[in-house]
Design a protein around this nucleic acid. Structure first.
Lengths: 121, 121, 121, 121
DNA sequence: GTGGTCTAGACCACC
DNA sequence: GTGGTCTAGACCACC
């Protein structure tokens, strides 16, 4: 899976890496148990410092998306605990996006269609 | 409309102000054309630096939610151009929320139900 | 509150800092809402790199013991959510300590007395 | 006694082996004088490098839980010197667990009840 | 070879 | 002035 960084974005690089890996897991480009590139390999590939990749992996690990060990590197988790509940933070973000959608004239049905589209991807 | 700030949140204060005003516009607590408090008044009310409020208003203006003129202060826009299109940034955020929803076992229908709920609010 | 680091210990420095601050909170040397030293100040005082203190604070923040913001520095949380439940990790550690206690001939009552003593402190 | 390793845990494998053997001794699954599997046998059974098992055994020997001789392999100690005193390291760990318990609202009596329960096991 | 820790030093966003 | 991010580079524990 290719990870591309937007150097100009306000989102920190380690967060961008985290986000893209979560996306990869959710859409199946990253399989359960699959090995991620090593910290150094990914850092080299993207052209950034390995501490930054380290931080991204530490975050993903803490959130339960991956596990790491010193023998075998980083791997996508095999089974995800189905909390069936969005994090509070994510709910607030979603409400915020919806408020913007409403203001720019997107109807509920149009918004749901957009979500359906994204759910497939 | 009361603006409440969470000092402990990671979201910058100017962003919190911006978010709450957008929410207020979308749910009708702020009417088209309605005058917003002056920068100084709002800063005093919240108990923060007025530069921070200034930054929030500048952002809202740049995003087209409000307009300002030197005599009459800041007002909610009268008519919103129905772009019918989310900002690129918001689409990315939405995709991110959806990816997390999928991973934690929320089905498409459950997610849509959540959105419908938020659309009403 | 004085933080003292054991350079020879196997426990990472950032973890030692975290541990001592949690101890300080639990025994009342650090009051709710109290300001912690700034990252740079603590780093200078201990004689270590500020990134290490940063990491300790980030961990404490993530665990909910403190909050940080760029205006006012780091503060002890005002109210702790009373989960009334040890983390799974801590339970395993406790079971391990108890197994060692049993082997070296410490009776249940002696162990409980030790715990009572530590609870007061 | 079956030794099970959690590859995803942060605790090093040699430490996990050491911990489980100490647990086994304390709850009687491993009898005084009982022979432990050979390094090679255990390594093969678990599916790890025998250097790792070696390290675990060396640690257990150094802590006085087992003894080894070249002909007969590793054995659980016959009689444990009742030091009646926890290792300094374990005391610190216990104090740490207690501090976390206090912060999350567990009362002294609740904590003692938990310990009593673990002492039986 | 792997991730984890730490340093010395820089720059940035927020306020 | 504050914490947060990032770099370049080193060394360490684990396996």
């Amino acid at each position: 899976m290719v990870i591309s960084i937007d150097e100009t974005a306000e989102v920190p690089i380690y967060q961008q890496i985290r986000n893209q890996i979560v996306l990869g897991i959710s859409d199946g480009r990253l399989k359960p148990g699959e090995q991620l590139p090593t910290v150094r390999a990914l850092a080299g590939e993207i052209g950034i410092n390995s501490m930054t990749v380290n931080k991204a992996y530490a975050l993903l690990k803490q959130e339960g998306y991956i596990y790491t060990d010193r023998r075998n590197g980083a791997h996508v988790r095999n089974e995800f605990t189905e909390t069936k509940e969005l994090q509070e933070k994510s709910k607030i973000i979603l409400q915020q996006v919806i408020s913007e959608a409403k203001i720019c004239g997107i109807t509920q049905e149009e918004f749901l269609a957009l979500c359906r589209n994204m759910y497939k991807g």
